[in-house]
C-alpha cells in the first residue's frame, strides 16, 4: 500500500515545494506571483495562510490514513475491532475545525473591508469591455483609447499560422495601447461592458471584477512600484475571449503627466471625480 500513499505524498510535496520556490520564475511557476499594490501582500498572505492550514491538515489526515492503510491490513494479520462510535473523538474533530475556521474568517472579513474601501481615489478610469477589446476613459483628464491584442500575437494566433508562438515574448499578453497609471496613487476603476460580461484581471495588481453591460462595478488599486503588468479577460465572452489582454504600465508621476499630454489629455493634475456607483441602478 505504499503505492496508495504515493499520490497524496506527491501532492503534499508539491504543495510544500510551492512554498520554497522562487515565485518570480515564469515557467513552472507554482504559486501566485508577488503583487505590486498596497493590498496584494495582505491578499497573498491570506492565500498562503489557508494553503498552509490545508497542507498541514492534509499531512496529518493523510498521515493517519496512511498509517491505517499500512497497519490494519488483513495480510498483516490485523483483526477487526467492532467499535462504531466514540463521542469524545467526534466532538473533538467537530470542534477543532470550527476554531480553525474562525481563525481564518476574521482576517478574511477584515480583508474584504479593506478591498471594498474605494473612497477618496486620486484618479478614476472607466474601463469598458467589448467583444473583443478593452476601452479606457480617463475621467479626470479626458484621455481615452481602445486596447486591442497586438498584431504580432494576432497574426501568430491564427489556426495554422505557421508561426512558432514560443518566439513571441508576450504572446497573447500584449496590446497596442497600454493603460498607464502613476505609481503611489489610488486608482479607481469603474467597470462596465458594451455587449456581454467580461472580467478585468491583472494578477500582479490583485484585483479582478466583472464588467457587466448596463451596470457599473468598482474596484481600486495603489501600485507600489513601477513596471509593466499583464493580465487578460477572465469571463468567457465568446470567440475572442482568449484574445483580449490587459497591459498596465505603472510609471512615475512625472512620466504620467507627460503621457497624459502626449495623449491629448486636458490637465495632468490629478483630481477626484465624484460619480455615483450605486450598482443597483442601471447607470449607463
Amino acid at each position: 500500500m505504499f503505492k496508495g500513499l504515493w499520490k497524496p505524498i506527491c501532492a503534499t510535496v508539491a504543495v510544500l515545494g510551492l512554498l520554497a520556490v522562487n515565485p518570480a520564475l515564469a515557467a513552472w511557476q507554482l504559486d501566485m506571483p508577488v503583487g505590486v499594490t498596497t493590498l496584494s501582500g495582505m491578499i497573498r498572505d491570506l492565500h498562503r495562510e489557508i494553503l498552509i492550514i490545508c497542507t498541514i491538515t492534509a499531512v496529518v489526515l493523510f498521515g493517519i490514513m496512511g498509517y491505517a492503510l499500512f497497519a490494519f491490513r488483513k495480510s498483516r494479520g490485523a483483526k477487526a475491532a467492532t467499535f462504531s462510535h466514540n463521542t469524545t473523538a467526534e466532538i473533538i474533530w467537530t470542534v477543532i475545525p470550527i476554531f480553525v475556521l474562525i481563525y481564518m474568517a476574521v482576517p478574511s472579513a477584515r480583508g474584504i473591508l479593506e478591498i471594498e474601501d474605494a473612497g477618496n481615489p486620486d484618479m478614476t478610469i472607466k474601463v469598458t469591455g467589448y467583444q473583443w477589446k478593452w476601452g479606457y476613459e480617463y475621467l479626470d483628464n479626458g484621455v481615452s483609447f481602445f486596447a486591442n491584442l497586438d498584431e504580432l500575437s494576432a497574426e501568430a494566433a491564427r489556426l495554422d499560422s505557421g508561426i512558432d508562438v514560443m518566439d513571441i515574448e508576450h504572446y497573447l499578453r500584449d496590446v497596442d495601447n497600454r493603460m498607464v497609471v502613476p505609481v503611489g496613487k489610488k486608482v479607481r476603476i469603474l467597470l462596465t461592458a458594451n455587449d456581454v460580461i467580461h472580467s478585468w484581471w491583472v494578477p500582479k495588481l490583485y484585483i479582478k471584477k466583472d464588467a457587466i453591460p448596463g451596470f457599473i462595478n468598482e474596484m481600486w488599486f495603489t501600485a507600489t512600484e513601477t513596471g509593466v503588468f499583464r493580465g487578460q479577460c477572465t469571463e468567457l465572452c465568446g470567440r475572442g475571449h482568449g484574445y483580449m489582454p490587459i497591459v498596465v504600465e505603472v510609471v512615475s508621476e512625472e512620466d504620467y503627466a507627460v503621457w497624459v499630454i502626449e495623449n491629448g489629455g486636458e490637465s495632468p493634475t490629478l483630481s477626484t471625480t465624484e460619480i455615483s456607483t450605486d450598482s443597483s441602478v442601471a447607470a449607463l
Partner: peptide, 11 residues
C-alpha cells in the same frame, strides 16, 4: 478514516 482504523483491510 475512523472506519478504517483498527479494521482488517483488504484492497
Amino acid at each position: 478514516t475512523a472506519t478504517m482504523w483498527r479494521g482488517e483491510m483488504t484492497f
